[in-house]
Simulated scan of single mutants.
Amino acid sequence: MTTTKDTILSAACDIYLLEGYKGMSMRKVAARVNLSPTAIYRHFENKESLHHQVLREGFKTFDSYLQKSLKGATPIERLHLAAKQFFAFATEQNKYYEILFLTLDHTVEHSVKGALVKDATVSQQFMEDRVRECMQDGSLHDDDPEEVAMLLLATCNGFFGLYVSKKKKDSLEEMRAKYARTFSRILNGLKR
């Protein structure tokens, strides 16, 4: 069941993607969801708290996708599942993907950075842990887990960036197949 707060967050995401943080206002969000501006303030103290909650929800949603990969039986299977979950997040939660990975307004990031550092580093740490597991069991050769995780995340993010920017156009299934092959190529270069 969608709550008023969820509807407000969704509208804030839409406006943020169209106009950026500076173009987002409580009045615009209220108008988009057919509420009075006063009604928005019942849920969010101000524009900054609304922006903060949009980012927190995005990070929380991304983490919920990544956590599903822990069902894999082996470290390498968990790493492959993490890549699949990144794909699922980017294609099923495209608003949050764009906000978190492509359009985050760094001119206002400082105002929310302190509160979001933990949320923002969860995915990086999650991938580092998966990579470290693979190195410990011998699936991947020994290397710096942080740098290898960064390589994998950068590859995934760059792949989706090409599609979001409309530089590549494929069906979802073609995109999924290319993504799987791309990730496999990278992992094959890292295997023992």
Rank of each mutant, 00 (worst) to 15 (best):
L100Q: 03
D105P: 08
T61D: 07
D6S: 10
S64H: 11
K68N: 10
N46Q: 00
L116N: 10
M26Y: 05
E98P: 01
T121Q: 11
L18C: 08
L70Q: 13
A11K: 03
V33I: 06
A31Q: 14
Q136R: 12
L152K: 01
F87L: 10
K84C: 03
G58I: 06
C156P: 00
L50Q: 00
D137A: 07
K166L: 13
R56T: 13
I40P: 01
K168I: 15
I15V: 11
K169P: 00
K68F: 01
D119A: 13
T2D: 06
V33G: 05
I40F: 02
N94M: 11
S49N: 05
V122R: 15
N34Q: 13
S36T: 07
L9S: 02
R56A: 14
L187P: 08
F59K: 06
D170G: 05
F62E: 15
S111L: 14
Y41W: 02
I99A: 00
P37C: 09
Y21N: 07
A31F: 09
E174V: 00
F160M: 06
S139M: 04
K167Q: 15
G189V: 06
V148N: 01
T107L: 07
T38R: 15
E98R: 15
G23V: 13
F101E: 13
A30W: 10
R78K: 14
E92A: 11
M26R: 13
E48D: 02
K60I: 03
K60W: 03
K5W: 12
L152R: 00
S25C: 08
L55D: 00
A82P: 08
R32K: 14
R32V: 02
K166N: 14
L190K: 09
L100C: 09
R185E: 07
E45F: 01
K191D: 04
L79C: 06
E92P: 10
K166H: 15
D142Y: 06
T3I: 09
Q53H: 09
G158Y: 02
K95C: 05
T38A: 15
F62W: 14
E92W: 05
R130K: 13
D119S: 14
Q93I: 09
E19C: 04
E147S: 11
L116G: 08
S139D: 04
K5S: 15
K47F: 01
S165C: 11
G72T: 06
E128S: 03
